[in-house]
Design a protein around this nucleic acid. Structure first.
Lengths: 110, 110
DNA sequence: ATTTAATATTGCAATATTACGATTAAAATT
DNA sequence: AATTTTAATCGTAATATTGCAATATTAAAT
């Protein structure tokens, strides 16, 4: 026990859970927000923006990358990071869809 | 170490991270989707829908409730669960906002 | 009052996450 | 070539999560 039983859920469910989980930490939310704020790809500079040690930030970046939320490309001795818009789109569609379904119905039982 | 350093991030960042984290597990995604699918509040019945033991489901429900994603009210000897629309709205707004900011900019450096 | 049904809680083992110091790797600069 | 810069990786401690059997709780039904 201890490990998530992904095999019992649909691909879509696992995919959304992976994206959500990646954003389930304030540092990773902060990284994504910073990438949006600077409005471009960032080469270096991310570590200085966060109140965490360099290896910790590196680890968070890796998780965001594994989840497909950011892309990173080597740019000399720095790394260029930016948001992967497709992932954000998926999240937006997902919650937009849920929102629509919720407002469609009118049975207020709670 | 091992605990998230929430104190270094903004309230909003922590709030979004809590919501995302709650959805960062396929079982909890499945619960939310089920609540939407049946299109009403559900009294009982959730445990049978999931491929997990009753205590595990109960725990996932508790986490969704703590994060503010679902509401539960006692209804006889069953519990009536439903989505808290405000939380979904927050998520939709958040990702909608990010999406807008991303499509606004045109600097494709990646 | 007993039994039944639905859900929560407890306790625990397995695993995952978070954080960081130390180290390494790779490229730019001197 | 030696140094500096930037970021990844390793190792490890602290903590959190996942999952479930056993048990408790609560209210309805008998």
């Amino acid at each position: 026990m201890g490990a998530t039983k992904t095999e019992h859920f649909t691909n879509k469910q696992n995919e959304m859970a992976i994206l959500a989980k990646a954003l389930g930490h304030p540092a990773r939310i902060a990284i994504v927000e910073y990438l949006i704020k600077v409005n471009s790809c960032i080469c270096g500079d991310i570590v200085n923006e966060l109140p965490l040690a360099q290896p910790t930030v590196s680890q968070h970046l890796k998780e965001l990358k594994n989840a497909g939320l950011i892309k990173g490309s080597i740019e000399g001795n720095a790394i260029c990071y930016c948001i992967d818009e497709k992932a954000i789109e998926k999240l937006q569609n997902y919650f937009g869809n849920i929102s629509t379904k919720l407002t469609d119905k009118k049975n207020k039982c709670c």
